[in-house]
Write a protein that binds this DNA or RNA. Structure first.
Lengths: 170, 170
DNA sequence: TATTGTTATACTCTATAACTATA
DNA sequence: TATAGTTATAGAGTATAACAATA
């Protein structure tokens, strides 16, 4: 591992980034995104899960994506990658695969009771990591950041589109 | 490649991310950082450079890091990785390695005139990509975002520390 | 013929260890 | 003995192609 926050503080060699890099949005956003995710990946791994497995459990709970292809598409990974992930989760009794009776090629992925419990644990873990990461910001800055990131995400990635009714309801 | 903005718009399969993921800072920040960097990586590659090569050229221009170990530390990559990068840049006449006369184990990395020219081209390229990425935001949101990201970066990564005098001067 | 889930394989990065020359 | 640069190797993660079952 090369870069984490919290667990392994970055080594201060005294050297600083040149401002041409330190003030570049690509560099800033790329580095922060990577650092935060790295931290989440590390702690999830300690808990026995990969970040993908956490994402898959979340998607299985949501239930909008039933078939494996849909799950893979939403998570931007290949169908073939998903197979091994689901195998592991199924062996641990966290999800179940059932044949879709309408189209027997498809598998419907369902979260088990145990899977729901584990997901709750993992979500608590991730929430704490996020809080720690955002700790240097006051409440207003946090909500500003969230609003701006959401706007960018919606503009660049249709998967972040918010169904209007849902947005109003919740 | 799985995820780019601009060049290859994300495929809209109609499926949306569950809000538990879409509203998660880890997911948002991770995804946006990855997407922006991915775009920069893709276009730099078309121009004949890797993102690391672009970073190395920038560092060589800055001149604060002279030895290879220092450059590697600041860019969070291993010394051994840097060797090949510098080989390629030197073959193309963009940088030069000279023995440090005070400590003959060390190499001093210098940007050549040609390297400076190329760096100018690449920086224009990266600036354009960043502008396109931030296009959905108004000027105030952009400066808010930049301020917040900078604060987070300084809090979590000492390499982003701003020497006080430099901060005032520029 | 096209699609779903699956399997097997290849390739790219990155991490690690070991070597040399200098200190 | 420790450090700078280098080289070579191994591993993780990902991309690609091909297969069987079903539509």
């Amino acid at each position: 591992m090369r870069y984490t926050i919290g667990v392994t503080p970055p080594v201060n060699t005294g050297a600083c980034l040149p401002s041409a890099l330190a003030t570049s949005p690509v560099f800033l956003l790329g580095r922060l995104g990577y650092a935060l995710k790295r931290q989440a990946v590390a702690e999830l791994e300690e808990a026995g899960y990969s970040f993908y497995e956490y994402s898959v459990l979340t998607l299985a709970e949501d239930g909008t994506c039933k078939a494996q292809t849909e799950i893979a598409d939403v998570l931007l990974l290949d169908r073939s990658q998903l197979v091994g992930l689901l195998d592991g989760l199924e062996e641990r009794g966290l999800i179940e695969r059932q044949r879709d009776q309408n189209d027997r090629r498809r598998h419907v992925v369902k979260l088990t009771r145990g899977g729901r419990q584990e997901l709750g644990r993992l979500r608590t873990l991730v929430n704490r990591i996020e809080d720690e990461f955002l700790a240097p910001l006051d409440a207003e800055s946090r909500s500003d950041l969230f609003a701006i990131l959401s706007r960018l995400a919606r503009a660049h990635d249709t998967r972040f589109a918010v169904p209007a009714d849902v947005a109003v309801a919740s």
